[in-house]
Amino acid sequence: MENSVQFSTLFQQIINGLSLGSVYALIAVGYSLVYSILSFSNFAHGGFLVVGGYICYGLLSGVDVYGFFEIPSSGIWLASLGALGGAGIVAVLTERLAYKPIRERTSMTLYLLIASMGVSIVIENIFVILVGGRFRALPQDIFPSALFNLGWNVTVSSSDILSLVVAVFFLGGLQFFLSRTRWGLAIRAAACDLHTAGLMGVNVSLLISIVFFVAGLLATVGGIFLSVRYTLYPQLGGITTKAFVAAVIGGLGSLPGAVVGSLILGLAEMLTAGFISSQMRDLVVFSMLVIMLLVKPAGFFGRQISDKI
C-alpha cells in the first residue's frame, strides 16, 4: 500500500514536472537565443512575457478596441494570437530603442545587460501604473479543465496536457525554423559570428529583430500558461529567473541545452514538492544552479566557459 502511494506520487509529479518544465523551456530558449547572438542575458525577457500576458488578459476580458471590436471570452485562440504578436513587437521595439543604440557605440555587453535590467523595471512599472498591481486571473473557462484518471491514482489535467502539447508544437516549430529555413541558417551562423554573418549578405539588424520577435513570442506562450497557473501580476516576469537558471544549467546559448535544463528543473521542482515539501522547491532550484556553476560552469551543452551573466 505504502509503495503504491509512493509510486503514484512519483508518476504524478513526473507529469507535473514535465508540464512545468515545458513552460520553462519556452521561456529559456528565448534567453538562449538572444544570448547566442548578442552575448548578453536579456533580463527584460520576463517583461515580454508580462506584456503578452496582459494583452491576452485585456483581449479576453472584452476590452473594447475602438468600440467595435470585442473578443468573446471564449476567444482564447484569437487573444493568444494577439498576445504573441504584440509581445513579439514589444520585444523588437525594446531591442531597437534600448539595445541597438548601445550596440552601435560599444562592444561591451555589460551595458546591454544593465539596460535590460532597466527595461525590465520600466515594463513592470508601466503595468503597475496602467492596470495596478492586483493579481488577475485569466477567465477560468479558457482552457478545458477536465481531469483524466490514468489509473494508480494518477490524474492529469487537460491544461497540463495542453501546455505540454503546445510547448512541443512551438519548440518543434522553432527547431524547424532554425534547421530548415534560410533565415534559420543565418541565425545559426550569426550565433557563431555575427560580424561574419553580415559578410554573407545577411541584414544583421533585421536578423536581430527576428530573433527578438521569436523570443518575445515564445516567452508569451509560456507566459499565458504561467498566468493560468499562478494568475497574472506585473511581477510575474520574475518567474523567468527559473527559466534563466534552466538556460544556464543547460548551457547558455544552446537551445537543446535550454530545453533539457528546463525539463530537469521542472522535474526537480515537482519531485521536491511531492516528496519533500513545496517550500523547498526554490532552494533545490538554486542549489542546482550553484552546484552546476561549480562543477560544470558552461552547462550541459555550453560551448565555452566565460562569464555567463
Partner: peptide, 28 residues
C-alpha cells in the same frame, strides 16, 4: 564578396551549411 582575414568559417556549421550561407545574398 570578401574572404575575411583569418578565414572566419562558421565552425559549428557543416561544410555544406557554410557553402549554403554563402549563397544567402542571392535569395535563391
Amino acid at each position: 564578396s570578401l574572404v575575411p582575414e583569418g578565414r572566419k568559417v562558421f565552425a559549428p556549421l557543416t561544410v555544406l551549411e557554410n557553402l549554403k550561407i554563402g549563397a544567402f545574398s542571392r535569395a535563391g
